[in-house]
Every structure is written in C-alpha cells, then in structure tokens.
Amino acid sequence: MRSKNFSRLLLSAVVIGHCSLLSPSAFTAEIPTYSPPPAMPANAATLPRIVLVSMGGTIASRGEPRTNITNYGGGVRVEPIDWVNEMPEVATVARVTVDDQRAPQNRASGQETHEDLHRVSQRLNELANDPNVDGMVVTHGTNTQSEVAFYMNLTVKTDKPIVFVGSQRPWSAMSGDGPRNLFDAIRVAATKEAWGKGVLHCTNNLITPARDLDKTSAYRTHTFKGVDVGAIGVADPDRIVFQRDVIRRHTTGSEFAGKSYPTVPAVEIFYGYREAPGYFIDAAVEHGVKGIVIDGVGAGGATTSQQAAVKRAQEKGVVVVMTARTYGGRVQDTPRRREAKMVPGDNLHPEKARILLQLALTQSTDLAEVTRIFNEY
C-alpha cells in the first residue's frame, strides 16, 4: 500500500513539474522582446570626434542571399553613411562623420596603385592636422589591408589614433563580422589610450599594430594575427584594454611621416624555392628596378642561381633585402649575409619590406643606412 501511495505521489510531482515547465512564465525568457534604439548619452556633445574613412573592401559590399559570403559585390556596395545609419550604436561612443576615399572605379584592394595610397596618406595627414578631429577609422579590403596600414603607419604624422578595419564577410551576410568589427574599431579610435601607438588594426576583438599584422586565412573571420608578437590589446565588451606598447618607430617618430611621395623607386619581390631561377631578377634589373626583396627559404636563403643574379644586380646599384617565407622569426644579421651585402629584413613580410625599402630608397642607397632603417621600423 505504501508503495502504491509513493508511486502516486511521484507521478503527481512529475505531472506538476511538467506543467510548470509548460506554463506561460516558463516561456517568458525565450520570447525576444523589443529593444529600443540606444539612448544618446548625456555627454554626447563631448564625445570624441571620429572620421570614418572608406577605402572600400568586403565590409563595403552587399550580397544576396544572406548566406552568400564569398561571391558578392558586383556594384552593390555600402556607402560610408550607410554604416552610420545602420549602426545607431556608434553614436553612443563617438561623433562620427564620413569621408569616402575609395579608389576610382571602386578598384579592389589587390588592384590599388601607389597613387591610391599616396592620395589617402595625404588625406589622413590633413585630417590629423584638423583640430576638430580626434581620431580616424579606415575601412579597407582584407587582401592588402596589412601593407596599406603599414604604409600609413610610416607616412602619416600624428599621435591621434588611426584604426584600420575590415571584414571577411559582406555587410549583408548572415552572421557578418563587419558590424562588430567596425563598432569596435570606432571604440578603439575614441579611446584616449590609443593615442601615440601608431596605426592600429582591430578585428575579431583584437588590437594589433600595423607593422606586425598579417592575414593568415583566406575566408575565416579570425584571419588577422600578429604572427610573432600577437595583439597588444583587446576590444572587450566592457572596455578597450591595452596590455603593452608599440616599440618600433611610427607616425610622429617616422622620418617618412608628413611628407609627399607621389612616386617611389621600383622594388620587386622574388620568392625562394627549390631551383628558383635568377633570370627573373635579371629581367627586373633590365626594367629598371632599384630594389629587390627575396622572400627566401628557411631563415632567409636564396638559390645559387638567385645569388648569382643578386651579385649582378648589386653591381648596377640595386639594393637587396632578404626576408623569410616562414612568416615567423627574424632574418638575422650574419657574417655570410654581410659578405653578400644583403640587408636583413628582420621579421617583416616581403610586401611590407617592399614598402619600407621603397621609402628608404627615397633617402639613400647606402647599405648601412638602409640596414638602420630596417632595424628601427
């Protein structure tokens, strides 16, 4: 009898518990509620003044359907003001104005010319000198974003924050990374702690100096990393946190900053691999290049054929820089490399070494002087 009573009590408890789970109150937390637009802060008139500069890119593209994250664009693009209108949250952290600096014909990031970089560098210098501007955010395609940001890091003279940002998915994509990346980049540019750190980059919540930045994946949203040294800070939901400072010369400490470079000496990159021939180098020299970057094997090595071509190039005054295709670790200053008269490229990737060599050659072709520049930047 006791066993039957106990079974009835247990069954009642199960039924009551089941009913309580199905009660309206149980569903309340699962029903999405209306969220009003973010309230303007009381101190809105004193918020930092940030200029949002558009250089295009995936973040400025739309695609249909929303699941399309690789085949987008085709002239359907996001205007700079659209970012502000579609993200009212930015008004809670900064007073944002827009500046459209997209290349003519909306050229993709991989098709930009030095003329495009020079034009935007001049514009950023103008904005930096404007007392009504507290910081800048630059959107750019991820394909060449790291090298473009590095160029601005060397040529724009300011302590004000300049933050590059982009996305791996179009603005319209399901679970697109663009809106959050852009919002965080504006937050970084509006942060007083970002002053004096040179050109920065912010995606996937990570803040990385332009010099150390590299794209490591074709489509993944975690693509940007500082391979050797990592990020220097994070854009966490509660606040922007910097863990360390930037050591290399940049912006106000750069001897190239604030100047005009409508043209730069021609520099080409050659890849190191087994049996890599030297005739490509010979052809480049015949076409008038003034500098060469060899992305060498291992810790920075060239093939026998490339070495012979390098000697012929050096006899004609061409400066040669050696980087490493490992994308991690420094190319060091060794007796053998000094004897070969090759400038160690440190841990710069070849595309960045090319930019630095172009700027260095506007000042000097002396190997000791070029080596100093690569050691300091």
Rank of each mutant, 00 (worst) to 15 (best):
2 R>F: 10
4 K>C: 15
6 F>G: 14
16 I>C: 07
20 S>N: 11
21 L>V: 10
25 S>H: 01
26 A>N: 06
30 E>A: 15
38 P>M: 06
39 A>Y: 01
51 V>P: 08
52 L>I: 06
53 V>H: 04
53 V>M: 07
53 V>N: 09
54 S>H: 09
57 G>K: 14
58 T>L: 07
59 I>Y: 10
59 I>S: 15
59 I>P: 09
61 S>M: 09
63 G>A: 15
67 T>R: 14
70 T>F: 05
79 E>S: 06
79 E>Q: 14
83 W>P: 12
84 V>S: 12
84 V>A: 10
85 N>H: 13
91 A>Y: 04
96 V>I: 14
97 T>Y: 01
99 D>F: 06
102 R>L: 02
106 N>G: 11
108 A>V: 14
108 A>T: 08
118 H>W: 14
120 V>A: 07
121 S>P: 08
124 L>R: 13
130 D>V: 05
130 D>N: 12
131 P>N: 09
134 D>M: 11
136 M>Q: 15
136 M>K: 05
142 T>M: 13
145 Q>D: 03
145 Q>W: 15
147 E>I: 07
149 A>N: 04
153 N>M: 04
158 T>H: 05
162 I>R: 10
164 F>H: 13
169 R>V: 06
176 G>Q: 06
180 R>C: 11
187 R>K: 06
191 T>S: 15
191 T>H: 15
195 W>A: 14
198 G>I: 06
200 L>S: 04
201 H>M: 13
206 L>H: 08
208 T>C: 06
211 R>D: 00
215 K>H: 10
220 R>C: 08
220 R>W: 12
227 V>M: 09
228 D>A: 09
230 G>T: 11
235 A>F: 09
244 R>Y: 07
245 D>T: 15
265 P>V: 09
266 A>F: 09
266 A>W: 06
271 Y>G: 00
271 Y>I: 14
277 P>R: 01
281 I>E: 05
286 E>N: 09
291 G>M: 01
299 A>I: 04
302 A>K: 04
302 A>I: 02
303 T>Q: 08
303 T>G: 07
307 Q>S: 14
309 A>E: 10
312 R>F: 07
315 E>L: 15
319 V>Q: 11
321 V>F: 01
326 T>R: 00
328 G>E: 03
329 G>F: 01
331 V>S: 00
333 D>Y: 03
334 T>M: 08
335 P>R: 07
339 E>C: 04
343 V>R: 00
343 V>H: 05
347 N>G: 00
353 A>E: 02
355 I>C: 05
357 L>V: 02
358 Q>P: 10
358 Q>A: 03
361 L>D: 02
365 T>F: 12
374 F>G: 11
377 Y>V: 00
